[in-house]
Structures are given as structure tokens and as C-alpha cells.
């Protein structure tokens, strides 16, 4: 129920396109494709995911400009913030920020919001003004990936040493 509602709300972010077709899942095909030509980076859009396989229901990739709107929608639907993290897609020359949300409810709905940014100038807007609990998660993501959260009140190293100028989870990080 909640999932359908929030899907409808989130789909207003993507007016022009129909829902994306699900990605090809079978392992064999993927392997062949990877060997020959890498998959193009994923485009923005809303996807339904098989919960039993992936562990979440909705997967929305938004542009950094739409991020705050999307998170506000989830806040209004009483989602709690689970975590924020990054993924380094070095082959696409992109960084991805992944936001996990869920609800204190028996009507289960897990939502993942993603946004992709250029690897050279990784900046996304902060969501600490919507979810104060995003503060540490964003600082941690800044530690590990060097992603800057514009408007964050206190973007200094959290888990890494206070003088850290390296980002260990970048794929080209050399210890």
C-alpha cells in the first residue's frame, strides 16, 4: 500500500519517461556482456525491484537537483533514514550516492534513492536540514569517497583522522 503510494509520488519526478524496463538479471549474459562491451551507466528513473532477491522495493535514480525534492517526499511519508553511502563507478567516470530509507511499519517498503555525479567534481546537496541523522552518514561518505555535500554544517573527517586528505574507497586509491 505505502509502496504504491510512494511510487506514485516519486514517479512525478520523472514525467517524460515510462518506467524503466528491469535490468537483465541472468548471470551468464552479464558476464559475456562485461567481457565484450561494458554496460552504459544507468539512466535516471524509477524502478520496482524484486524484494526477495534485492531486499528492497523501490529504486529511484534522480539527478542531484531533484535529490532534496525526492527526500522531502519520503520525509512526508514518514520514512526513517537507514544509511547513506557511495559507490565508485570508475569505468563510467562517475560516483554514486545511495540513500536507504525504510519505515517503522508492518506495511514494509524499502526505498533506495541514488544519484550519480561526475567523478571530477563530486558535489550533491545535503539533506541534513530534512534528516538531521544524515549528518554523520554524509560526513562518512565524504571521508570515504571525497563527495562534497553542499550546505553540510560540519563537513570534517568523522571516521578518518582529522588531517586525512585521502579517500580510501575510491577504486584508484593506493595505500
Amino acid at each position: 500500500m505505502i509502496c504504491e503510494k510512494i511510487q506514485l509520488t516519486l514517479s512525478s519526478l520523472f514525467p517524460e519517461s515510462a518506467p524503466l524496463p528491469p535490468e537483465p538479471e541472468s548471470a551468464g549474459d552479464e558476464k559475456d556482456k562485461k567481457a565484450k562491451s561494458p554496460l552504459p551507466p544507468r539512466q535516471d528513473g524509477l524502478m520496482e525491484r524484486e524484494y526477495l532477491v534485492h531486499g528492497y522495493h523501490l529504486d529511484a535514480q534522480v539527478s542531484p537537483a531533484q535529490l532534496v525534492t525526492a527526500v522531502t517526499m519520503l520525509d512526508e511519508a514518514e520514512f526513517f533514514i537507514e544509511s547513506i553511502t557511495g559507490v565508485d563507478w570508475i569505468k563510467d567516470n562517475q560516483l554514486e550516492v545511495v540513500y536507504d530509507f525504510s519505515r517503522y511499519d508492518f506495511d514494509l517498503c524499502r526505498v533506495v534513492i541514488r544519484t550519480r555525479i561526475d567523478r571530477k567534481s563530486p558535489v550533491v546537496p545535503t539533506i541534513t536540514n530534512i534528516y538531521p541523522g544524515a549528518n554523520w552518514h554524509e560526513r562518512e561518505t565524504h571521508d570515504f569517497f571525497g563527495i562534497k555535500f553542499a550546505g553540510h554544517p560540519h563537513l570534517i573527517p568523522l571516521l578518518l583522522p582529522e588531517d586525512a586528505d585521502f579517500h580510501p574507497l575510491l577504486k584508484d586509491f593506493k595505500a
Binding site: A27, K34, H54, G55, D59, E82, D100, S102, R110, V112
Partner: peptide
């Protein structure tokens, strides 16, 4: 152990 390409979550 080689899980297929994808993104998985477990709580």
C-alpha cells in the same frame, strides 16, 4: 562464491 551482478540489501 560469485554473486551475479546487482545490488543487494539485507537487514
Amino acid at each position: 562464491i560469485k554473486p551475479p551482478v546487482g545490488d543487494y540489501y539485507q537487514a
